[in-house]
Amino acid sequence: MKHPLGVTVAALVPLTLASLMTGAASIDVFAAPSDPWAMLVLMESRLPRTLAVLLTGAALGVAGMLLQALVRNRFVGPDTVGTGESAALGLLAITLLAPAAPIWLKILTAAAAAMAGTALFVAVIRRLPPREVMLVPITGIVLAGVIGSIVTYIAWQTDLIQLITTWLMTGEFSGVIAGRYEVLWIAGAAAGLAWFAADRFAILGLGEEVATGLGLGTKGIMRLGLAVVSLVTAMVVTTVGMIPFIGLVVPNIISRIMGDNLRQSLPMVAAAGAALLMACDLIGRLVRYPFEIPVGTIMGFVGAGIFLILLYRKPAHG
């Protein structure tokens, strides 16, 4: 592939159109300008859902790439290191302590908790022997499990299990309508802003020594990276739930093809994340039409398959 970004963006167009045309209501989206009913379905349901999928896929892909650069390990994603569980813990805490808090405060709390959880993960793995590559993802899974069980325990004690299942269970987009997905724009914006610091993240990916030698304040970049990863994950978890594998698989594929010059590869990661999630969401909506299979389930199948292929295939020489 000579122009991977071009190919991916070209693939996104039909996927997006297909998403706009797919749904339980039988309408002709192309007649929307003259048909108020079709227009209503398009603007209230189809378009928000499509945008939500695009934003989520792109932002999670970027968050995964950043996380992998920050911890210098290819086998982690925002969904495997406890970031999402921490966001849920924060949201649960503010729901219990200040149920009347405005929505922006709840979002902020979720993001702050996600950041604290991810920072805890980074602090723990710093103490691991650097050559033990596999201990890093294992630590993440253990940490995620511990935080997740704390959330479940508190929710169980306070009769809030129903509330947390929407965050901790497999994510899906069927509930997305206008007015219920907009915070995902924050996730998209955070991922977009990360591009401006792409060189810094790439240099930090070379290790703290090289970064220090080049005069970069490594702590600042680490914090910025954690903030983006946490913001993206918190927004996604609280609106559509956990979406597995996107943040793990997409950065791996793109790194194989394009390497880790993030200034070049982050747009590609975003496009590929959006395309993959959109494709999986479409499969989920079409397999048992008009019923749906959650995109998280589809993504689990597809993502696990891709990941296994990646593990067994040597990277292509560039």
């Binding site: 210098r72 590559v133 790439a202 990916g205 990277p315």
Partner: peptide, 14 residues
């Protein structure tokens, strides 16, 4: 440490 996946030209340019 484990190498990042940068092209040599990108590394030197840094």
């Amino acid at each position: 440490q484990i190498a990042s996946r940068l092209r040599l030209s990108d590394l030197v340019a840094f």
